[in-house]
Computed example of a mutant assay.
Amino acid sequence: MYPVEVAKVAAALGGTRTLRADLRSLGELTAAVEQGFPRGVVRALATAVVPGGDKGSTLRRRVEALVASPATLKRSPRLSAAASERAERLARIAALATQALGETGEAQAWLTEPHPLLGNRPPIEVAATDLGARQVERLLVNIEYGLPA
């Protein structure tokens, strides 16, 4: 089961303009990941995850680095399949946070602030790995349905 609509994940990656495709199905998303996303999705994702403000630019760079190194982003116009998979995972978590919490600003704060059930690490950083993303997804689904953590 995919916990959030593909269109919402695509929106967190910058939408049709950044992806250069209108991704509506899991199959289309999978094919785009395998092909490698355009590097612009990294900046779009960081903007979707991190609230504005003074510390925003530092946090955005940290989120970007979860997907690919700055050197890699400068070198190639497309992400590797592995980096695209990391971007998709983080975008899925961002979309699920917005779905569960109801507001973009609240979701951004939740994603970037340390969480006690995640070892006092920000959920977006925990979600950089597959196992961590599963933990974060479980927390968000529990929030969405009013279940205990």
Rank of each mutant, 00 (worst) to 15 (best):
M1P: 14
Y2M: 15
Y2L: 15
Y2R: 15
P3V: 05
V4Y: 10
E5V: 08
E5D: 15
V6R: 12
A7K: 14
K8T: 07
V9T: 14
A10Y: 05
A11I: 00
A12E: 12
A12I: 04
G14F: 00
T16C: 07
L19M: 05
R20T: 12
R20D: 13
A21G: 06
A21C: 03
A21T: 11
R24E: 14
R24K: 15
S25L: 08
S25Y: 03
L26Y: 10
L26N: 14
G27V: 14
G27T: 15
T30F: 08
A32H: 08
A32I: 02
F37L: 02
F37S: 04
P38F: 01
P38D: 03
V41H: 08
R43A: 13
A44M: 08
L45T: 12
A46K: 11
A48W: 12
A48I: 04
A48H: 14
V50H: 10
V50Y: 05
V50R: 10
G52D: 15
G52P: 13
G53T: 03
K55L: 12
K55T: 11
R60Q: 12
R61Q: 13
R62V: 05
A65G: 06
A65L: 04
P70H: 05
A71K: 06
T72W: 00
L73M: 12
K74T: 14
R75N: 03
P77D: 13
R78Q: 13
R78C: 13
A81M: 10
S84N: 08
R86K: 15
R86W: 01
E88I: 01
E88S: 02
R89F: 07
L90G: 15
L90A: 12
L90W: 05
A94W: 01
A94V: 06
A94R: 11
L96H: 07
L96W: 05
T98R: 15
A100K: 07
G105M: 09
A107I: 02
Q108A: 11
L111F: 06
E113W: 01
P114D: 02
P116Q: 00
P116F: 00
P116L: 00
L117T: 01
L117H: 07
L117N: 08
L118A: 03
N120Q: 08
R121N: 12
R121C: 04
R121I: 03
R121D: 03
P123F: 00
I124E: 10
E125M: 08
A127M: 09
T129N: 08
L131G: 11
G132M: 00
G132N: 09
A133I: 10
R134F: 02
V136D: 05
L139T: 09
L140N: 10
V141W: 03
V141Y: 05
N142C: 12
I143W: 11
I143V: 13
I143Q: 14
G146V: 04
A149G: 14
